[in-house]
Design a protein around this nucleic acid. Sequence first.
DNA 1: GAGCGCGCTTGATCCACATCAAGAACGGTC
DNA 2: GACCGTTCTTGATGTGGATCAAGCGCGCTC
Lengths: 187, 187
Amino acid sequence: MDLVRRTIERYVPLRTDEWERIAPRWAEHAFSKGAAVCAVGQVEERFYIVKSGVQRLSFPHDGQDVCVGFAYDGSWCGEYASFISRRPARFDVVALTDSVLVGIGHDDLQRLYAEVPVMERFGRLIMEELLLGRATREIEQMSLSAEERYDRLMARSPHLLQLVPQKDIASYLRMTPETFSRLRRRH
Amino acid sequence: MDLVRRTIERYVPLRTDEWERIAPRWAEHAFSKGAAVCAVGQVEERFYIVKSGVQRLSFPHDGQDVCVGFAYDGSWCGEYASFISRRPARFDVVALTDSVLVGIGHDDLQRLYAEVPVMERFGRLIMEELLLGRATREIEQMSLSAEERYDRLMARSPHLLQLVPQKDIASYLRMTPETFSRLRRRH
DNA sequence: GAGCGCGCTTGATCCACATCAAGAACGGTC
DNA sequence: GACCGTTCTTGATGTGGATCAAGCGCGCTC
């Protein structure tokens, strides 16, 4: 629970009375390796903070899973788009390792938005942050070659290689496992 | 000014006293064809609603402009990422036609967020909407072939072809003007 | 520890789209 | 209305990365 408070306070200060209204809305959810946090077609009911484990965000495209992101310790997790829009998820969220997520239900969050003004700001700041991340990824996806995308990821997040299967990283970098393997050999 | 009120009220209801605090913060800005609304390297000072005209969002990549979006009547405009983060813009925003934008300055908006609670919600809802749009675009960019992306755009926004140069649409669809031209011939 | 499935590697081949090149059809401007 | 820069078209050629096809290694389960 302390994780939730620390996380929110990275964005907005919390008075004790505010925190007391917020805390009871969050709950831990455990997922074992391979389990679906959210599956295409269902409506995402929760917004999560990762307590432990690694999760993959992907969407299915003719038999393949196209990976668009990962979540791990301290980052946000869930199918945000479905959570926000209340429409069926277009992405899958899968636990790549045993995971513990701390989540808040959609209705609970809406109630907090209405009851605790500072939460509305927190919500805005998160959405801004997620949007910024997407802008960065968009530039990289659009302007870099397969090899440059590989180099960039290895420079920024080399630990990913230890955490998740290479085929998922390959997909995330918009290339086949074969190409990824060849790039790796050529350093 | 009415445009601003109607736009905000698509997201949140406004009482008269709230609107009276909001209205004076917005101002019209005219840009003639080809003018830069925001250029790479400068910090975006305003967030705009398009009153008239068409604008292009792009980033430069070895001598080329890679187009990532368009704005027109009623849509949002500006280099959001820079506006939010207060960091130098990585995208250019250019008026493709003579344009009138209604904008609010960064500091003014922050003040409204603090003074008018309903604006904080408005801000969150806009960010959610922009994030949803990016998610949709990401799926389409990642999973569709050049031809499918062409078909999808022509089905959804055929009017774009009248509004903006084909080379910009081609770039937006992640293909060369030559490929775009050939797809057009084959219907 | 035998058998099996899946992920990773490595090589050979293929193809969608880019690049290069050269006209043709526009505007704008003097 | 002649000039010029830009955009659009059309054809010929090139290529990065995908696809196809084996083999290999490692962790399961029985």
